[in-house]
């Protein structure tokens, strides 16, 4: 009886701790209900519905996966940078961006079905990704997360992405018409990431910088433009996301220590969100008053 009672208390406490994040509805009025002009301004949103510590402590990777783009944006707009992470963070891709989803589904449908998508649609992916967007699923099948390195003697912060060795599979590359990538990929460094061998690719600079969606607070930027500052660097691979390639620039903000919400941009066009999680860090940093921001929070000068 006592054990049952304790179990109930624990469950109820857990539920109470997971306060639902509040969101502001879009404003009403004639015309397109999803028009950008109806979305709440972040400054107004943050003043009216600031995120409480309970809301932040209650958020999980799974909860984020269920949010739509507007909810993710409203969440992001109420966050600040937090400290710059150090260590390995597991990654989860969230593709809720209407433009990307529609582009994939409508305009390039026939193109994708003839290449990678067709393979996965017909084979294992149909079983693995029952309820996920196929691009999200493919991303997680290939991308495992990010490693944040400690600062070096020049004050530089490096990051690399943990990519599944599966990406080197000759069969897949040939199927996708990417035979030219086979040799360069064979040179990519392999290291342990969360216990598994991963290709540590796509080096990037990490720094405090401007958010492309909310300039009121700086975000932690993961910028691939000058990834060639870090060695080893494989131009044929790592350059794809660099300044002469697709120029990927990510930005992240902290939900709570060990959990960050990110946004990925290609040539400054927004692509998708992602989550970075390190459960060990999350476990040891629950004291809200100790949470600090490394980057500028909007105080006028710094």
């Amino acid at each position: 009886m006592k054990k049952t009672f304790l179990a109930v208390v624990v469950i109820l406490t857990g539920l109470a701790a997971q306060a639902q994040v509040r969101f502001m509805p879009l404003s009403q009025g004639p015309g397109d209900p999803k028009h950008y002009s109806k979305k709440p301004d972040f400054a107004v949103l943050e003043a009216k519905l600031p995120l409480t510590p309970k809301e932040r402590l209650g958020l999980t990777r799974e909860a984020l996966m269920k949010m739509d783009q507007e909810q993710l944006d409203q969440l992001y707009g109420r966050l600040q940078s937090g400290p710059i992470p150090v260590g390995d963070y597991k990654g989860t891709v969230l593709i809720k961006n209407e433009t990307i989803v529609e582009t994939e589904q409508k305009l390039l449908k026939s193109l994708f079905e003839k290449s990678i998508w067709g393979v996965f649609g017909k084979l294992a992916l149909a079983g693995i990704c029952m309820s996920r967007d196929r691009m999200e699923c493919l991303s997680e099948w290939l991308w495992y997360g990010k490693r944040f390195y400690a600062v070096n003697e020049f004050g530089e912060l490096q990051l690399r992405n943990a990519v599944s060795p599966r990406v080197r599979t000759e069969y897949l590359l040939k199927k996708a018409g990417l035979e030219k990538m086979i040799e360069p990929l064979s040179r990519a460094p392999v290291q342990k990431f969360n216990g598994s061998d991963m290709l540590m690719m796509f080096p990037a600079h990490v720094y405090c910088g401007l958010s492309l969606v909310d300039t009121r607070h700086e975000s932690i930027i993961i910028d691939y433009a000058y990834g060639d500052d870090f060695k080893p660097y494989i131009p044929e691979i790592d350059g794809i996301v660099g300044r002469e390639g697709k120029w990927i620039r990510d930005e992240i903000r902290m939900i709570r220590p060990g959990l960050y919400l990110g946004r990925a941009y290609m040539d400054r066009i927004f692509l998708l969100n992602f989550v970075l999680e390190n459960k060990e860090v999350a476990k040891t940093n629950t004291e809200v008053s100790a949470w600090k921001n490394k980057c500028w929070t909007g105080d006028s000068w710094q």
Partner: peptide, 25 residues
């Protein structure tokens, strides 16, 4: 600019009217 202004600008690269930054506010 950062605290009050830039969030109201049009983002030249936002091409979907449903995206923040599609137009000015």
């Amino acid at each position: 600019a950062e605290q009050c202004w830039m969030n109201h600008h049009m983002d030249l690269r936002a091409l979907n009217p449903h995206d923040r930054g599609f137009g000015q506010t």
